[in-house]
Amino acid sequence: MAYDSIVCVKQVPDTANITAEAMKEDGTVNRAALPTIFNPEDLHALETALEVRDQYGGTVTVITMGPPKAADVLRDCLFRGADRAILLTDRKAAASDTLATSYILGQAIRTIGRYDLVFCGRQAIDGDTAQVGPQCAEKLGIPQVTYLEQFVSIHDRVARIRRNIGHGWEIVDVKLPAMITVIETANKPRPQAAKRVMKMKSARVPAEVAAEVKAAMPDASEEQLAAETKCRVDALKAAGLLIEQWDLAAINADLERCGLSGSPTKVHRIQAIVLTKEGYTDIPANETGIRQLVHELVVDRTWG
């Protein structure tokens, strides 16, 4: 019996490697200057889906929500073995919090239609909330199994999953369809397959094609640009290299539930972490200094 999976992935700023160049003068982070990466746990979600397909048959469809540049992670998925990729992009989706994001992803998954399993990484490194997976499951009205560390088996549309509960693990059976969130110890993501890279490196979403055309024809009129874009898009489609691009209308989304208006949480204030250096006693890194420090801590009964 074959099982169809949908994997939700996200392109994120590489928050672990923020360098001085990525800081603005006021001490805040300049997102545009940051390199973007495939959200690490989403790679493990993709790998889990690919392993299910390898073992039981079926398909793997990946979906991401973001600007046209997020097509990078979709190409990466195609190179690693995904069957189908969809970019959800719409300016009206900007500033969505986890509730609005899960609504939009839920609508997109409904639009895809048939599925047995939905996989997400447990959390994304830019927010670390771990909320979108469970919220998306609720939007779809399906059960959720969080923190998968091993996909044990599927039998008669019941998946057996080992999940990490922090201070141990549990094995659960869940009837499909279900949403599964995956942690990084679950598996080792397969590398990109060279053959698939060769075959699909020129895969693009229409928005990327339009941007490329605009860059190549700076003096062209709007009509000329549109005509050239359509021509290139048609050619990609014929070659099977067009990545699908959906907007909020395509997934029949209620705009009131998307973007800022669909987001109950609002950012009231952002404070950059300013590197301050004040208020501590400087201890010289020598024997006298350290002896004095130890003495002080004994006297004030910190050690005692």
Binding site: P13, A16, V29, D126, T265, K266, I270, Q271, I273
Partner: peptide, 14 residues
Amino acid sequence: AFGGNIIATIVNFD
């Protein structure tokens, strides 16, 4: 938030 590079204060109006 953001890998610990900022502190965000979040509110929920309604």
